[in-house]
Simulated assay, not measured.
Amino acid sequence: MDASLSDIDFNTTFVDDHFLFKDTVDGFGITMVLLYLVVCILGLAGNSLVIIAILKLDKLSSSTTVYIFNLALADGLFMVGLPFIASQNFQNEWMFGDVACKVVMVLDGINQFTSVFCLTAMSIDRYMALADPLRFARWRTPRWAKMVSVFLWLFSLLTILPMALHFTSDRGLCIPDFVSDDWWLGVLSYTFVMGFALPFTVMTASYTALLLTMRFQRIRATSLNLATHRLESQVTKMVVAVVVVFGMCWLPFYTFNFYALYQMGLVMTFARAFEFVVLLSYSWSCANPILYACFSDTFWRHFRTLLCPAAKTPPSMQCNTERYDLNDRDVTILA
């Protein structure tokens, strides 16, 4: 839970001191609120564009686009809670009531976990698509991807619901009903493993195996055409982008959460840095549509078609979001 963990850890650890900054409004606070709103607007707009492109132009025709659709849906919904978090951080007070506190935190947690789980499933899907498409063909149908996606949404709900329902605004902030330091350390450890460490490990392993497989196939090939060169370059750049951006956005967030357990007093510098890493973790949901546009020619064409109807790509130039020839393994990579 992104915002929840940030506010949880920061505010539960320092709940007795939060009134120190309640009336402190300065340039930093205003700047952060503006940045939160910018991230929210860009995240909603970018992910909405991805959803529309998939539904209108692709129509969920492949397993890849099914996962991208659910990823964009989770990322877009993830942005909905951002104005509430920005308001609490700016005023250092929750003004929306106890019910809204629980609802926002539940939705925040579900969408965060679903987003990460979908990206993890997509990394496995990418490996199967390139490593041995014949062998894994039956596991990569749109129908199968839809069933996996439904499971991921339900699993995210079950994963986060018990912790999210512990949130309350009784003490002026939307924070969990703090039980003990050991209890909260257990919650943080569980969330870190499920929401970052395990998915990050799976993604890294899948993409590493994918690159090694492609390199092995390249060595075995008698000739290497231009399309294969372009494919390997595209996959390599996507690997670096996905893994690095995910790690850069989320690792500081979890690091600050654990460090906050050992803070003995509220320090302005730490509080402001914490607010920034929360924004950074939310920014990851804005990054995915940008990555699609930068690394996928198909999505770039889809975006141009939606945003510039006069510049539609001729039918002869259009292609499916995922295609491959079982003989030469020529694949268009989206993620």
Rank of each mutant, 00 (worst) to 15 (best):
T64L: 07
P83C: 11
S115A: 07
F299M: 06
F19D: 12
C308E: 13
A100K: 03
W94G: 02
W183H: 13
A273G: 15
K237Q: 08
V277Q: 06
Y36D: 14
M95D: 13
P83V: 13
V33Y: 12
A197G: 05
L44P: 01
L157S: 09
M238I: 11
F270K: 03
Y262K: 14
L165R: 04
G43F: 02
T159D: 07
L154G: 10
F113Y: 12
C286K: 00
L152M: 12
V99M: 09
T114F: 11
L130V: 12
T269G: 09
F256S: 11
P133M: 04
C101P: 02
A311V: 07
M264E: 15
T269Y: 15
W284P: 01
A241M: 01
V242G: 00
I51N: 02
L158K: 05
Q112F: 15
N89E: 14
F200K: 01
I54Y: 10
L119M: 15
N89G: 05
R143F: 12
A121Q: 08
A260Y: 11
V148A: 05
L173E: 08
F295G: 00
F256W: 08
A273F: 14
S156Y: 05
A137M: 06
G247E: 04
G109D: 02
A129D: 06
R215C: 05
P314T: 04
N225T: 08
L157T: 09
A45V: 15
D7C: 11
L326R: 09
A45F: 11
M128N: 08
D177E: 14
M163P: 00
C174F: 07
T141W: 03
L165M: 13
A260H: 07
K22H: 13
A131K: 13
A100D: 08
L82N: 12
M122G: 02
M122H: 04
P199D: 02
C294D: 00
W300Y: 14
R140N: 15
L134T: 10
M32W: 07
L71Q: 14
I8E: 11
A100L: 10
M317S: 15
N225E: 06
F270G: 02
L266E: 09
M122K: 00
F295N: 00
R126H: 01
K102C: 04
R304A: 04
D132G: 00
Q234E: 10
F258E: 06
C174L: 09
Q88E: 15
T159Q: 07
D23Y: 14
G195W: 14
V148T: 06
K22Q: 15
L326D: 09
L71G: 11
L251P: 10
E275R: 10
R143H: 03
A287K: 00
F196H: 08
L44D: 03
V267F: 14
N47G: 08
L210A: 01
D328A: 10
R323S: 13
Y207D: 00
D58S: 12
F246V: 04
S283R: 00
T65K: 06
T114V: 15
R218G: 02
T65M: 12
T24Q: 13
L71M: 15
V239L: 02
T201Y: 06
V39Q: 03
A273N: 10
N70V: 04
I175Q: 09
W94K: 02
C319H: 11
G247L: 02
S283E: 01
A310Y: 12
L279K: 05
C319I: 13
F178M: 09
K59E: 03
